[in-house]
Every structure is written in structure tokens, then in C-alpha cells.
Amino acid sequence: MKVNLEICIDSFESAVNAVEGDCDRLEVCSSLDFGGLTPSIGLLLRLKTNFPTIPLMVMLRPRPGNFVYTTDESLVILEDLKWLKKAGADGFVFGALTKAFDLCPDWQGAIADAVSLGFRTILTSGQKYTALLGAENLKQICAEAKGRIDIMAGSGVNSSNLAEIIQKTGCDWYHGSASVIIHEEKNAISMGSSKASSRRVTSAEEVRKMKSL
């Protein structure tokens, strides 16, 4: 079984480290501390120029919070999609539902809907807080989806648990940030409301460890 690794990034630095660690593709975002938002066109263009052979899956999410969008928010998403596609996006990652897949009571029906609409992948933690906790459900979801749509296991996936998750689920794709905390000198003047003096950056070593599994 070929196992594939997608790394989500929100900076050029993280992308460089993910590629150095031999990831199979990138999920390109901004603001991963909010779960990932739509990235800038500038970031996508630089990634496309520097990593022309790495598939770039681009997040479409105009704000933090739920995935229940107004008409105006939907139009913003479609406008972003148009320009990001022109900038070289290989695919898009988004949710636009009253409930996301992991909250659907009828996940079999949700798979069928996603297949009929032409989606290629469902990212899920097996309807649990983490992929490891949802491993038994993920196994059932993968079996149901086999040959129709890829199931990507995500949430809390890292080098310490990936081998166990692979063994228990049999998914073809696995998703994580492979990030570490970088501490920075705190500015005397705060830019915005955040007081944080640290940030998370993808680690090439962690990606390499995950890929080796």
C-alpha cells in the first residue's frame, strides 16, 4: 500500500521545510492557528515558482469559525478561487456545509454526496477529536470509500503515532502540520490584539520522520 503525506503550511519557511522533508503535497493556508484560512496569491505564486512539481492544494476559508456562509461570503470564496486558480493552484480545500463531515450523523451518505459532486478527497479524524481516537471509525470510512474517493486521516497526526494510525486505519493519505514552536523576542509594541511571542513552523526533520513511516 502506498502511503501519502500532505503537510499543511502557512508560510514560505514551512513550505521549504516540508518539501525538504519529502512530503507528497502541500495544503497552502494562512493562519493555521485558526485552523487555516485562505492564503495570499503572493505566497502561492512563490511556492509555484520554487516547487513546480509539488501539488499545491489551496485552502478556501475567508474567516475563522463555522462553515455556514452567507451569500456575500460565498461570493468572496468564489472570487478567491478564480484568482488562486489563475495563480497555479492544483486543487482546493474547503467546507461549505451546515455541518462538516466529522459531524454528519450519516457519514455513508456524506461520502456518496461528495463522490457525486466530484470531490477527490475527504479529510477526517474519524468523527473524533483526533485521528488516533477515531482510528476504528476511520477504518470503516476507508472501507466504505475504497475506490470511490480518497480518505485522508488528519488531526493530531505526528511521527509518534502515525505508524499506529496507518496500521489501524489503512488510509491512503495522512495530513499534519509537522510543526514545532519557534520562540521569538517579544516586541515592545504589539501589532494587533495578540500578545504571542512564538509561532509554529513546519520541521523538516518531523516531516522526514513521518515520511519514513
Rank of each mutant, 00 (worst) to 15 (best):
V115P: 07
E144R: 05
V115E: 02
N158H: 14
F119G: 01
S155D: 00
R46M: 09
G170I: 12
S14D: 07
I9C: 03
K48H: 05
I7P: 10
S30P: 10
V16H: 14
P52L: 07
R46V: 03
V180G: 04
C29W: 06
F12R: 12
W107P: 03
A89L: 11
T38R: 06
A112K: 12
I151F: 08
R63P: 06
S203Q: 11
L56H: 13
G36R: 05
S30T: 04
I7C: 10
V3T: 15
I181N: 11
A114I: 02
V93Q: 09
S14E: 06
V68C: 09
G109D: 02
S74G: 15
L56S: 01
C23M: 12
A188S: 12
L97R: 04
I7L: 06
E206F: 11
D172C: 09
I149V: 04
G118H: 08
K168E: 13
F34N: 07
M57R: 13
A100E: 08
K48D: 07
F51P: 13
L37N: 06
D24S: 12
I9V: 15
G118W: 10
A89Q: 10
E79L: 02
R148W: 00
C29D: 04
V93I: 14
L47E: 11
S203R: 12
Y69N: 06
E205A: 14
I9H: 04
A100H: 09
I7R: 07
T98G: 05
S159Y: 14
G156E: 10
F94G: 06
V28A: 03
D106S: 01
L32G: 06
N137Y: 12
T53M: 07
G42V: 05
E6W: 07
K99E: 13
E206Y: 13
S190D: 13
D102Q: 04
T121G: 00
Y69C: 01
A89G: 11
A163Q: 14
V76F: 09
D150F: 14
E144D: 04
L75R: 14
